[in-house]
Amino acid sequence: MSFKTLQHSLIWTALVLSIGGLLFNTGALLSVHNDNELINQLASGKDVDVSKVISGKPELRLARALYLKQKHRYDEALSTLSLIMEQGDQAFRAKVRYNLGNLYLEQAMNHVETMKMNEALPLVDLAKQAYRQALALDSQDWDSKYNLEVAMRLLPEMDRINSGNEDDPKKQATQLWTTVPGFPRGLP
């Protein structure tokens, strides 16, 4: 095979590959568009075909978890979020944990409203844990900070043994602490 023939074949191969790339990228763009449509649909409170969510990107599951939470289907929302805890980049993982914290906190508040403290306490603890994880991933997330503070006020952490200086950091490392449920009602 001469150099010219080889060059000619290479040009044809390159053309076939670039047309392949063109088709692939068109498909990818179409898929992104369809996924964004699904996200929009879920965000506006309309359910979508679950099979599309299962086979889709983690953002779709996050959107469906939000939809399920809006419909008060908390258990389904929780299992949907738990599937994407370790997926995506750091910012996405922080968002998943923040929404997970909100899921727990909202349920806890519902229990507090009906004075079911025993049900509320573990949920607040889980919410705090989720917000802490979200902040460990993104310390600039103001919503996580705010809601963690809401959860902390709902269930303040206090030292069991108060030796005069309750926030002495050296002593706290080895001391036990406990939590006290309830809203600090504050000023009238």
Binding site: H33, K95, N99, N147
Partner: peptide, 16 residues
């Protein structure tokens, strides 16, 4: 309904 808290984060749109 209950105490004010920040709302859920809206899922990000996929980048094309």
């Amino acid at each position: 309904q209950h105490e004010y808290m920040r709302p859920d984060v809206r899922p990000p749109f996929l980048s094309g």
